[in-house]
Amino acid sequence: MAEPAAREASAREPGIRAAGEDGAAPSLLRVEQLSKSFSRRSGRETRTVAVLEDVWLSLRPGELLTVIGPSGCGKSTLLGCVAGLLGYDSGTIVVNGRPVEGPGADRAVVFQHASLLPWRTVRRNVEYGLELERRIPRERRPALAAEAIALVGLGGSEDLYPHELSGGMQQRVNLARALATRPELLLMDEPFGALDALTREAMQDELCALTSRTGVATLFITHDIDEALLLGDRVAMMSARPGRIAGMIDVPFDRPRSRDVTEKQEFRELAQLLRHSLRPAATSPGEPPGAAGVTGVGLAGPGRDEDRR
């Protein structure tokens, strides 16, 4: 699983990859004890709401980890912290041995809303990241952009403006814009959530193929159980208020996967298990405070502590 990513990384610009990973487990991303709260002023007093508390995660090179949880549990916040777009209160986030202190060229975000620049064509939108990062000389940008556009299957639409694209095509541009910068870690925040069912399935299939091909490690946020199981090598379940990783599932199907796995008995059982674990009644109210942060909570089967510390 790690080989294609390693090959990919060494073929990249020199100097991007940090040399040795510490310890035996080569993790591309390590999130340890992450806590984040928002303070909100209501009238005179300031109330602090803990959104993330004691979150642990790790991601191996080339791995696709899906994070699933109820709405408002802090998935986007977690992703924002890893992307370096949000600050956090305590804990550590390490990407490739370097602590995250802000946005970085080693990560690229595929946003929940496509957020394309409406006055730029598809091509110029895909070049946007390359243009701002300034790592790649100007004359090499069109080639990289064209490659990313081909990768997401948008060849021929380079000169269209965003308003001329369907929602699915806009998300493809969003994805291509992130891929064009050749990130080591792709951060995707419910990128297919707003698409119709058919388009979403097509995009899932393509992402399956695409991540296997490029070997880029991906943190993929979703609230769709089937999507989490279909795409993920592992599925992290988040519980709400405060958000933490309540369990981790190893998905026992080889990648690249076809959609056929969703028909398998084992897949349906895992989906059923996830569904039960994510029901609010199954997790939050009866749960004793101080339950271990990472170990599977309310999970009978494959859920287990994933993070090797």
């Binding site: 946005p103 946003f111 809303h113 957020s115 946007y128 701002l132």
Partner: peptide, 13 residues
Amino acid sequence: DRNCFNVARSFLG
């Protein structure tokens, strides 16, 4: 535009 602002930030703009 907040969203576009964050896109620019994520690319070190």
